[in-house]
Amino acid sequence: MVVAGTSQLRRRLGLCGHWLALALYILAALFPLFWLVKIAVTPTDLLFGEGIRLWPSSTTLSNFTTVLGATDFPWYFLNSVVVSLGTAAAVTVVASLSGYALSRFAFRWKNAVAFFLLLTQIFPLVMLIAPIYRLMTPLGLVDSLMGLILVYTAYNAPFATFLMQSFFEGIPKDLEEAAMIDGCTRFQALCRVILPLTLPGMGATLGFVFTAAWSELLFALMLISTETRMTFPVGLLTFVSKFSVDWGQMTAAAVLALIPACAFFAVIQRYLVQGLTAGAVKG
């Protein structure tokens, strides 16, 4: 009786410890984002007096309306949406094809191709910034959203290839073989039979690449100079270096930039494990 009691007590204590530790992680994950929102809704005149209070004595949405109505942020937002969606769509197409090739064909150099794609993932991309700028200038791709989409598509394609490959592996080969016996070419079988089955996988790839393109900063800083062509990271950083005391507007803009990223996170959350293990090195 006593033994049973202590073991139950011990289990209860273990459960408490488990939840306590989880609570610490939850707190650490949410606190920075909470603070961002808190500064954004604090009226400017209260900011300095109540700078480090957990919640201001009154709140306002005026920072958001100013950012949306009186700054260039709607432009940045639009540009980022165009670049991220364009990149995500382009990558999903090319990665579906290459992922299919790695999943369905046995061919010479296959391992070499896979190794090469993995190698590109640990390659220091920062070293390509100067040559890319130089090569793209005569082509008219500097200071253009098209140029950014091209660069991002190339740099996200390898990781997305591994991701799509892992989704194709989950679909039986008999399906397209049956379609090919019925007279389809392999490409027709891929488009009509296999791709509809990989739609969730393509959605996940779209989400991963969108998030990556939405976050990219250094290439965008180097390649874009016109205010109305800036993506969100560049626009926000320019804003921060110009008006570094306008806390309310900076944080309101930052909160707005978080929204699409979080929305796509909700979409891809289920595939995180598959995605990160496929990419292995993708941040």
């Binding site: 994950a29 920075p32 984002l33 998030t211 939405w214 976050s215 900063l217 990271p233 926000l236 950083l237 930052a254 930039a257 978080l258 990223a261 979080c262 796509f264 996170f265 995180l272 941040g283």
Partner: peptide, 8 residues
């Protein structure tokens, strides 16, 4: 936090 863009 993984979903938060790194610059943010």
């Amino acid at each position: 936090p993984w979903a938060v863009p790194s610059f943010l």
